[in-house]
């Protein structure tokens, strides 16, 4: 616990980090014409797996089949490579500041086991919800807002609005 509390001050200034993130996003649009994302990589992994295990089943479902249109291979999606990069980048930054090691992070009010079950549930809800919005906080909200997209702004307001709506009921998990 002591280690964690000291590390708190080694994070970057949030405005500096936000500025750099904005520049990276700007470069992404300028080079590739698209934005950054994350949930799309999980979608690609799921679709590829389902297709490998039950090919006809995947071909009969338009949601899976759309990702194979024109001979495309979901697993070679741009976002899969981008997410691999994110893992590498996070590892580099974490290693340089002594934050890279295996552990479960949770509030002292809950056990590690509870934290892991809640992470699974939260992830499932996020993955499910992201399909409706065609993207998550990075792909739909952040990248969408960068191009002033109406969908991006609505996604951002709904995610944060939803979180504030439910935050009170889950406060014991965090504070």
């Amino acid at each position: 616990m002591d280690i964690n509390s000291n590390k708190q001050h080694t994070y970057w200034n949030p405005y500096f980090a936000g500025f750099l993130m904005g520049i990276i996003l700007l470069l992404t649009f300028y080079i590739t014409g698209r934005g950054l994302g994350a949930s799309g990589a999980a979608k690609a992994l799921v679709t590829q797996t389902v297709h490998a295990v039950a090919t006809t089943h995947a071909e009969n479902n338009t949601y899976y089949a759309d990702q194979f249109k024109g001979g495309k291979i979901p697993i070679s999606n741009w976002l899969v490579f981008e997410v691999l990069g994110v893992i590498i980048g996070a590892f580099i930054s974490g290693s340089l500041s002594g934050r890279a090691f295996f552990r479960v992070q949770h509030s002292p009010n809950i056990t590690s086991k509870k934290r892991l079950w809640l992470a699974l549930l939260g992830g499932a809800l996020f993955g499910f919800g992201a399909q409706f919005a065609k993207g998550c906080t990075s792909g739909a909200a952040l990248s969408g807002m960068a191009v002033l997209s109406l969908g991006g702004y609505i996604t951002m307001l709904s995610i944060f609005g939803g979180a504030y709506l439910f935050a009170y009921f889950f406060r014991k998990l965090w504070i």
Partner: peptide
């Protein structure tokens, strides 16, 4: 769908503590 999906994502955020990125 975006509003419904966003609210579900918000719920996932306060339960799971992360977003995909």
């Amino acid at each position: 769908p975006i509003i419904v999906g966003g609210i579900i994502m918000g719920l996932g955020f306060v339960i799971g503590g992360f977003c995909p990125g």
